[in-house]
Computed example of a mutant assay.
Amino acid sequence: MTPLRTALLSARPYPTYRQFLTTLLKDKGRTTGDNQSELYLKIADLNEARMDRLDRKNRLTEEFRSGLTSLKKSYTLLVLTEGWCGDAAQIVPVLNWVAEASPRVQLVCALRDENIGLIDQYLTDGGRSIPKVLFLETATENVLAAWGPRPLIAQTISTQYRREPEPKEDYETHQLELHKWYARDKTISTQKELMEVFDWLESD
């Protein structure tokens, strides 16, 4: 079985994925993956609040919503993600907005660390950065495009941090600054880049 097929078989619809994360954290005091450090659990808890906030208010732009209503092809968005990933908390709910806006788009979520063979086909600067969104043709399950792990501006912020010489600000401080950017951006950059992928796929 291919890594893609394995991921699809284990993937959860977004509501099931959200409930899985909440139950894991609230009932078992755990997040996804092997790293159960205090930092990862703290971030996972913050991520719950971030996703809750985005789930409550769909801010899909009218331009994007209009584009989705005119899709001619059907797509499955397979996102590789984890509960401790801050970027995923800012982006996966937006993917759900997209799926809710069009019957031609479905979203499923698979855990990166359970699908290493697949994420290793879509590395970012040699790393297993997430979320990674694979755009599949629903009928054939062929991968048509990949996007992620974050919008270009956020990726630049992250890359600059990694390349800073030591000593540099601690990881938590960096994460706070990154999430301040997400708050100011209000998902606009994420939506714009996702819309560009759909436009490119539809023009083929």
Rank of each mutant, 00 (worst) to 15 (best):
N58K: 05
Y75R: 01
T32Q: 09
L80N: 08
D55H: 00
K42V: 05
D55F: 00
L54Q: 11
Y14R: 07
T31W: 07
L24G: 05
N58Q: 04
K73G: 10
D52E: 12
L54G: 06
R65V: 09
R53G: 09
K42H: 12
K42G: 09
R18Q: 11
K42D: 13
N35F: 13
R59V: 14
K57Y: 12
P13Q: 13
A7G: 01
A49G: 02
F20K: 07
T76N: 00
V79S: 12
S37E: 07
S70H: 14
F64S: 11
G67D: 06
V79Y: 04
L54D: 10
K42M: 13
L60V: 07
R5S: 15
T22K: 13
S74Y: 00
S74C: 12
T61C: 01
L71M: 04
A11G: 02
L8A: 02
S74Q: 12
Y40R: 12
S70F: 08
E38W: 04
D45A: 14
T81V: 12
T16D: 15
M51N: 08
L8N: 05
D27S: 12
R12V: 00
T61Y: 00
D45M: 11
M51G: 09
N58P: 09
P15W: 09
L71I: 06
R53K: 10
L8T: 03
P13R: 11
Q36R: 09
I43D: 07
S37W: 03
D45P: 04
E48D: 10
G29D: 01
A44C: 02
F20D: 15
L9R: 15
N58V: 01
K57F: 12
L60D: 03
E48L: 14
K26S: 14
R12Y: 08
P15A: 09
T16W: 02
S37L: 06
L25E: 10
R56S: 13
P13N: 13
G67F: 06
R5G: 08
K73V: 05
S10N: 15
Y14L: 08
A44G: 05
L39R: 11
